[in-house]
């Protein structure tokens, strides 16, 4: 009986898709990032984490965009200081099991992998052995839309790939082979510009090779409430993520939840009470 109860509960919980609050961090401080090329200052990490917890975000994604091949030692300390209980995902500079252990001790539950997801899949397997595939997310920064979806040029160069536009089947195979539970698809050039998401064309249905990925997708970059609501109706979507807009208005995530009802996707997400 008890097992049945827990099975039902987990089914109910799984039915919900997540609204993720993203905190881009550079040099130990929160920034408003625009296409990862230009940043504006946006305060300290602790208050940003606590704020998203107060807003009842389903999950918080702390994304260090400093482009350093290491974990900023200040970040785990700041996470501990914040004392938040909301599920916390961390991305940026993770290279080895030591990094993950440090972040686990600080209170992170899941990890976004980007560099090693492309150029060292064996390390991803090591991490999966340590924390399980359910705790790992692969990051996929893309530009263009539909059939012309391409890995962002910066990353293509960094990973030693000859052409800007990669073979979609290669990307798809890589994502499917990795022991990760979800893929964070980032509209790289549109990140920070609300309402400019362009990966799937205007009708949001030109998914191209992304439909062949057999993992759940977290969409991030240039989303608005309306676009995110429409993406939530896609069965492949497991979460939608918002970054800069969280700095601009009070209760921004709550307002976004409110907009989902217009797109008929409100039933996909929780409606938590405000404190």
């Amino acid at each position: 009986m008890e097992e049945l109860y827990f099975a039902m509960c987990s089914k109910i919980i799984m039915a919900y898709k997540r609204l993720v609050g993203v905190i881009p961090v550079k040099d130990g401080r929160v920034v408003k990032s625009y296409g990862y090329k230009f940043c504006r200052p946006a305060g300290d990490v602790v208050s940003a984490l606590r704020n998203l917890e107060r807003w009842n975000a389903d999950e918080i994604l702390l994304l260090d965009i400093s482009r350093q091949a290491r974990i900023d030692p200040a970040i785990p300390m700041l996470i501990k200081k914040s004392g938040i209980a909301t599920p916390l995902t961390y991305g940026g500079g993770i290279r080895c099991t030591n990094d993950v252990n440090t972040l686990l001790a600080a209170g992170c539950e899941r990890f976004v992998l980007e560099t090693i997801a492309f150029n060292a899949p064996e390390k991803v397997k090591e991490l999966a052995d340590l924390v399980g595939a359910q705790a790992l997310i692969a990051s996929l920064p893309l530009t263009g839309f539909g059939a012309s979806l391409a890995l962002e040029q910066y990353y293509a160069k960094r990973f030693g790939l000859a052409h800007e536009v990669l073979d979609p089947s290669l990307i798809c195979r890589r994502m499917n082979e990795l022991p990760v539970s979800e893929v964070l698809v980032i509209a790289f050039n549109r990140e920070g510009y609300s309402g400019s998401f362009n990966l799937l064309g205007n009708d949001l249905c030109e998914k191209g090779f992304l439909s062949d990925i057999n993992k759940g997708i977290i969409w991030f970059g240039g989303l608005s409430g309306n676009i995110a609501g429409r993406l939530l109706n896609d069965p492949q979507t497991t979460a939608v993520a918002f970054g800069n807009s969280n700095n601009e208005k009070e209760l921004a995530l709550t307002a976004i939840r409110g907009e989902f009802s217009r797109t008929g996707s409100a039933h996909h997400v929780r409606r938590p009470l405000l404190r």
């Binding site: 504006r40 704020n51 107060r54 601009e248």
Partner: peptide, 26 residues
């Protein structure tokens, strides 16, 4: 320090108060 563009029309928030005005201490 140009935290926002004017076109983003930032509004009053507890987070901005805590982070900038109150130096991170509520």
């Amino acid at each position: 320090v140009g935290m926002h563009s004017y076109e983003e029309e930032p509004e009053m928030s507890r987070r901005s108060r805590a982070s900038f005005d109150l130096m991170g201490l509520e």
